[in-house]
Design a protein around this nucleic acid. Structure first.
Lengths: 233, 233
DNA sequence: AGTTCATTATTGCTTAATTATATATCATAT
DNA sequence: ATATGATATATAATTAAGCAATAATGAACT
């Protein structure tokens, strides 16, 4: 794992430490090296270290108190809906069971988002979904990236829900999807997604029928979930 | 809004700035005062300021670059699943439409979590839900806090889903629920929740029937949603 | 054995100086 | 006039060094 330089030292260090923590380099509820030791180890100043520590504690990975030192918090308090944290987790321990759990979340969220979109999407938002669908069709011809087109389709529905929480989840979904889709397509043995089924989803949303929209998304996601679960046994 | 002193200066400043940003004191995509000005305004050192800025940027509220200064990011990039951010938002602009959106998220998540719990909850986890239900009953007699008992019930189901993402959402749900339940009970004119309906949920989970568990939770949440929507017109 | 007190490791906080990096300004050349 | 490029400037980035506050540990004293 090469760690290409980030925008600045603090971010670089935040990334390095965060990734190390997620990888389990430092035992949970045990200690990281002290600030002073981290300075030496990473050859940076105390301030840079402290700023990185503060960022990681803002993301729920660690806590730091005088004399006690810096402690890794239990996984349950890590903010997995922070895309940095999620990326670190996915790139260090991309387990199949985590993909299953992620897909279970999608099964909960995306059908509901589609139902809301069916009721409240603006013409511009519908055009955006349409556009993503066109990209998926292009991708079938090798004219676009199938992965990114697929992601764009699903996130554009979240945006069209006009619910701030769902909109906020676009980053989360697309981050995990970037790993998940690649995997499911791989085990299906196909390079891209089924454009027709995605077109169905858009139709139901356009027709303004929340129940049908919900069902259409549910169908496609349950399929993905079953595919993953079948590999888990 | 009194700002009681937090555990330390940096956290205090993070809270003050975060709350001010969410309240809209600093125009979005415009600038906060420069680090130097913030030092003067809050009478703290440069390092304390920088650490607070780093924490807020870790939560997606701001970005900071040389010459450009510190900018408030658009709301869509605020990490609303961070409990600090959520609390700031709820205590500064607790709008009814935000409660509606939150409840829509609950409608998506909690039925699915209950379905998973029906399939995979351990005896200890079931006991935990049971315990929360008992607290709700006690609260009916004035022997416990109805709000906290209700929250405990709903979060214990999330935990029993044995899905890391749902478990992670307990903090999010309970933070928003603390505002939401108080409001819905207020407009219903009752002090606590309907214990019988909650007991039904536990029964369906215990019986191991995911579909019925899902339906049971859906029912109770759709009710809450309709209540809120009826007040929005 | 328990309580108090000193020791000590570690983070918390301040100050100050230097460096890097964007942005804007202005001069120059086309 | 309009690009182009050099220069200035504002701002964060980074380092350094020291003192303060805090909490865990162990020692001393009932």
């Amino acid at each position: 794992m090469k760690t290409q330089p980030r925008q600045n030292l603090t971010h670089q260090l935040t990334h390095d430490l965060g990734f190390a923590i997620v990888r389990g380099v430092y035992p949970v509820s045990e200690g990281l090296p002290s600030e002073a030791d981290l300075c030496i180890k990473y050859n940076v100043s105390r301030s840079a270290t402290r700023e990185a520590v503060k960022m990681l504690s803002a993301k729920g990975l660690i806590s730091s108190r005088p004399k006690q030192g810096i402690r890794v918090l239990p996984e349950s308090s890590w903010n997995m809906f922070d895309t940095d944290v999620l990326r670190w987790i996915l790139s260090s321990k991309p387990s199949l069971s985590l993909l299953k759990e992620f897909t279970q979340v999608r099964v909960a969220l995306e059908p509901q988002a589609a139902a809301l979109a069916a009721v409240s999407a603006t013409p511009e938002q519908l055009a955006e979904i349409d556009n993503a669908l066109a990209r998926m069709a292009d991708a079938d011809e090798g004219l676009d990236d199938p992965l990114e087109a697929d992601i764009a389709f699903h996130t554009s529905i979240l945006v069209a829900s006009n619910n701030r929480f769902f909109v906020q989840l676009t980053e989360f979904i697309s981050t995990a999807l970037r790993v998940s889709i690649r995997y499911t397509n791989h085990i299906k043995g196909v390079p891209g997604a089924d454009v027709n089924k995605h077109a169905d989803i858009l139709d139901t949303i356009k027709s303004g029928n929340p129940e049908r929209a919900k069902k259409a998304v549910e169908t496609i996601l349950e399929e993905a979930l079953e595919l993953i679960e079948s590999k888990l046994d």
